[in-house]
Nucleic acid binder design. Structure first.
Lengths: 332, 332
DNA sequence: TTGTACGCGTTATCAA
DNA sequence: TTGATAACGCGTACAA
């Protein structure tokens, strides 16, 4: 690999000048610039990004922590984040936290040890206190899908509560009154918020919530499977169920059908997230759109703006969910 | 951030000794080691991986190129690769090639400029010649899902042809004789191989292929949608269709049902890949398992063994597909 | 078993 | 507008 030194020799200029044309951050006479560019071309020169990093104490890399790398939800998130940074010549280093406190901390430590210029965190298990402490640590970060008081400007969140509200309201408007709810793990903030929204919609219609209509799942298929079973068992005349995410909705749909119910005639179901497979389901799932890709891009823009001084404005931190009407809700 | 220099001062030893205990690649007296470890602890020292890289001309990072970051297929691939490297203290840098020649080349250039120690490539658009040429370029790489003659030991592939064979054979064994085929883009190697396998199974049963039973799709949902429409239009008494991947199968299922067909009674469908949503479908999709996660891990092991000198054996380069029987095939 | 000294390929400061 | 030259933080011969 050719170095900046060889380029400078071939072009007959100094190291410094070559560096200047590479970064074009200082005036260089056009003729000189051309000479340098030519030399770089002839030698097939590419800057060594490691050396650049060491000298500039900047790695041009951004660390991302997500819960899982697979799964439809994080796939679109990562895809959009990667694209945004790639355009800017930055690269992402990705680590999986698996919703586990130890692993999340390990991931963050790992990324920091990689000298990331910034982090984008979708973490669920670590405490707010931990994050506040991390905040003192030098490496700046943005938080996805979670609101921490003292760093509100760096939290990109969905209005989860409103999403939960919309899901239930949609059912209510379609005439349903006996509505089951399959929740995510209540220790997760988004799960709690969605449920709160559900309760609010119910309250608006003067319906009181009953514990027999609630099931706490795991945000995975199995939670949906067990959830319908439990709900149907406890209260056979439920006409609709809202699932706090699409994966559980998938499990719910399958199980309900296996129990002999016609969907959506006998049971309406609405999901949450609008992941890519939700319209491969049968019936196609009515769900709440979670614009995760856009939120990822916004997090990326925050980093680009505040860490790399790009001139960007309109950093939006709160996103609104909306209903995606498909075929899994029956009007009664 | 504390540096190795401060540690050496505090511990009262030389830089070299500190380096030795960090990498523990040279004898250090136990007492000395303890002193150094203590000093590192007191200072909260963490090695600067960038400086390590520059000095050792090794980045401990592996570049991965996949077609898409989202989508169920690549998600599990990336997840397993990341986990494997993470355990070894390496990290991955991921880039999307989008099945486009220019983007694939750009991605590779980008990763090389990041000084990756090795690359794992799932590329479809670049030519074999390009890969052979890349092979001269210094950065070693492993190829996924593609066989290039002169570098066979570094190609981790699925026996796609056998997969195509199995899919059709399964249908044949269930009594189907009029079988449609929705292919991926024939310029893609795996699409071609799968189709060849299909033809071979047909031939074994003495059935000749008809062009009216073939449709070239795009490996996406839309291909399945258009595919069934075309196939059913051309030949109304088809009893089964094999789709060259699960996404197309999803589109096929939906469209067939919209055309009033009962599945699987009126039309059997088999997919390929066994992506995670294939059992969220209705009917649950019978498909061919593509052990993509395991193949990714194997690629990672190759890198660990050959680039990082880990003592690993049993590098398997050819994987075998198998039938996953679910509910989308009807026996006649 | 330990220390010295140089090199890795850049950036950045200061003069010129 | 350009050129010396000192960092950047660490690995690694080579010497002791």
């Amino acid at each position: 690999m050719a170095t900046i030194y060889e380029v400078s020799k071939l072009a007959g200029v100094s190291l410094a000048t070559v560096s200047r044309v590479i970064n074009n951050n200082a005036p260089v006479r056009q003729a000189t610039r051309v000479k340098v560019l030519d030399a770089m071309d002839k030698l097939g020169y590419h800057p060594n990004s490691i050396a650049q990093s060491l000298a500039s104490s900047r790695s041009n890399s951004i660390g991302i922590v997500v819960s899982e790398l697979n799964g439809p939800f994080f796939g679109t998130l990562l895809s959009d984040i990667e694209a945004a940074f790639r355009r800017a010549g930055k690269h992402v280093i990705i680590a999986a936290g698996h919703s586990d406190e130890r692993l999340e901390k390990e991931s963050i430590a790992f990324l920091k040890s990689r000298n990331c210029d910034a982090l984008i965190l979708h973490v669920e298990a670590v405490s707010d206190d931990y994050l506040r402490q991390l905040n003192e640590g030098g490496t700046p970060f943005v938080i996805l899908n979670r609101f921490v008081e003292s760093m509100s400007d760096r939290c990109v969140t969905l209005n989860n509560q409103h999403g939960g509200y919309l899901a239930t309201q949609h059912l209510l408007r379609n005439g349903h009154r006996k509505i089951g709810y399959i929740s995510g793990p209540m220790w997760k903030n988004d799960a709690e918020q969605r449920y709160l929204g559900h309760l609010r919609a119910l309250a608006e219609y003067g319906i009181e919530s009953k514990s027999s209509l609630f099931y706490e799942g795991d945000f995975h298929e199995l939670g949906g499977v067990k959830g319908v079973a439990a709900l149907l068992h406890a209260d056979a005349d439920i006409t609709a169920i809202v699932c706090a995410n699409d994966e559980m909705a998938a499990g719910a749909v399958t199980t309900a059908r296996e129990q002999g119910l016609r969907l959506p005639e006998d049971l309406s179901i609405v999901g949450f997230d609008n992941v890519n497979f939700s319209h491969y389901m049968y019936p196609k799932l009515t769900t709440i759109d979670y614009p995760i890709g856009g939120m990822g891009v916004m997090a990326a823009r925050w980093v680009l703006k505040h860490i790399y001084q790009q001139k960007l404005d309109n950093i939006q931190t709160v996103f609104e969910p909306r209903v995606i009407e498909r075929d899994s809700v029956h009007s009664i």
